[in-house]
Amino acid sequence: MSVGLETAPAPRARTGRAKVTDRTKAERRLGLLLSAPAVIVMLLVTGYPLFNAVYLSLFSYRLTAPDDRRFVGLGNYATALSDGLFWQNVFTTFLITLITVAVELVIGFALAMVMHRAIFARRTLRTSILLPYGIVTVISAFAWRYAFDLQSGFVNPWFGLGDFAWFSDRWAALFVIILSEIWKTTPFIALLLLAGLAQVPRDLTEAATVDGATAWQRLWRVILPNMKAAIMVAVLFRTLDAWRLFDNVFVMTRGQEDTATLSFLTYQQTITRTAIGLGNAVGVLLFLSVVIIAAIFIKGFRVDLSQVRGDR
């Protein structure tokens, strides 16, 4: 439905010019007035701090030694970008993002198919899928951590793993982190895909069935191409969300065993170690990486966000 058409003042313009401009003016003023509180809050929390982060990242500055603050230009960026630890964290973040999004896309699609075509227990299914969505990420992290923990867990005895310490090994720890993330966020992707599935025209799948297409062919030739927009939006949102992963790492390993993500590194530098300059440089790099990923999706893969924004 196009809102623009209904509100267009064109038909009224013929009756009286002065009146219309008054009305239009009032409407504009009201529109801006109604939008102002939200825009101001969003600007206050993101705009100023972002500029401040860029500014602070140009200084060598520790909170513990404020008098030693001096301008170093892009020095902090050079330090971060030439540090092996930074790149290791980039790689960890990349790996977590790639695996979670890929796995969630498959599981999420399966969930969406089951929900879409469920004959019975429809309500129960939807309710149960919303549980992980609603649960606090930190609590999901604790649940999975304690399941794999040597002291409290059931995983090792059940699977005969003896005293294998999951959180003393990089890949094992990352496995549990990824598992918790997948459990918590798959429902989100499943619901977006469910909305996409609902848009695949029924006639098309039925016609394909009549023409003798197998279920597999229907999936790849009819269903998936027709919900490409929904898939791309879901992947974009989940990718950016996974790229920011923080809670699970904090609860499970506190970044030990080389499991730190970019978000965790930023937090560690700015808050824990109070290395304001370097920490903000990492934070700005994190921000830029998000901008680049979003740009790749929107320009490269042509994800149509006008539908998401609702301004069609």
Partner: peptide, 11 residues
Amino acid sequence: MFPVVSLVGPL
């Protein structure tokens, strides 16, 4: 889409 952690230091 904003990475929240980037703002935490300045905030």
